[in-house]
């Protein structure tokens, strides 16, 4: 059933159908989110206007974890069922996840300086997110470290699965250890500790980011599949020339 989408033509058609359904809502939700985040949401009682950094920081952090989880699942599917699209999806997702993690770290630092009084501390939360960033970079590096792309794919997939253990560690780091970073505000048992006027821009941005990820994912998967086809074609041509 899924196997048939490994056919590049079918995938391209599916991607072409889905793309506008991801890209336009992503743009609309992010613009609406930005409007509320910057113009139409209250300052925080403690942090004043600086709370507006939350509306990019928190959705990026969620995406950093979400993309990594998707990538690792995709890698597991690739390793177990040898589905060619699975590795392509993981390969396409990695740079997107790395970018979201980078944005999360940068905006966190820009938020930490005025509020906590420091750009960076080595507490469990910040350190585990930095490790996540390096896992993404390691995945990308390992993939291209072998002459045989299939070997690179497999090694990178194993790294992604090993690194999956970091995802719950990041989430629970603020519970298990003393950290400078505060505990979770939204995803917690007792319900969100954020006022609804602040939850609105947060959720708009979060859903917008998710759709933006899907948009980028489809574009990048398409490019990767085309690159593979180009590689195959030029190999065939070289072969043909050698035979003549």
């Amino acid at each position: 059933m899924i196997q048939k989408y490994a056919n590049p033509a079918r995938f391209n058609r599916l991607a072409a159908t889905l793309l506008p359904w991801f890209a336009w809502p992503a743009a609309i939700l992010i613009f609406a989110g930005l409007y509320f985040a910057l113009f139409n949401s209250p300052p925080d009682y403690q942090q004043g206007e600086s709370v507006r950094i939350m509306y990019v920081h928190v959705p990026s952090a969620w995406m950093a974890l979400f993309v990594y989880t998707c990538m690792a699942i995709s890698c597991a599917v690739g390793l177990i069922w040898k589905h060619p699209l699975a590795h392509i999806a993981a390969q396409a997702a990695a740079p997107i996840g790395a970018c979201f993690t980078f944005v999360c770290l940068m905006t966190g630092s820009l938020w930490g300086k005025p509020i906590w009084g420091t750009w960076w501390v080595w507490d469990a939360r910040l350190t585990s997110v930095l490790i996540l960033f390096f896992l993404y970079l390691g995945f990308l590096a390992l993939q291209n470290a072998f002459d045989d792309p299939a070997r690179g794919e497999r090694s990178a997939a194993i790294l992604a699965l090993v690194g999956l253990i970091n995802v719950p560690i990041i989430h629970y780091s603020v519970v298990w250890w003393n950290t400078l970073h505060q505990p979770a505000s939204v995803i917690k048992m007792a319900g969100p500790a954020i006022h609804s006027s602040m939850l609105l821009p947060l959720f708009l941005m979060a859903i917008g980011f998710k759709l933006y990820f899907l948009t980028l994912l489809l574009l990048r998967m398409k490019a990767l599949m085309m690159a593979r086809r180009a590689r195959g074609m030029s190999m065939a041509q070289l072969h043909h020339q050698a035979a003549e």
């Binding site: 209250p42 925080d44 906590w116 009084g117 917690k188």
Partner: peptide, 13 residues
């Protein structure tokens, strides 16, 4: 060094 630790609550003043 003195760092401020804020809680997880966010709300308008």
């Amino acid at each position: 060094e003195v760092l401020a630790k804020h809680d997880e609550k966010y709300m308008p003043p």
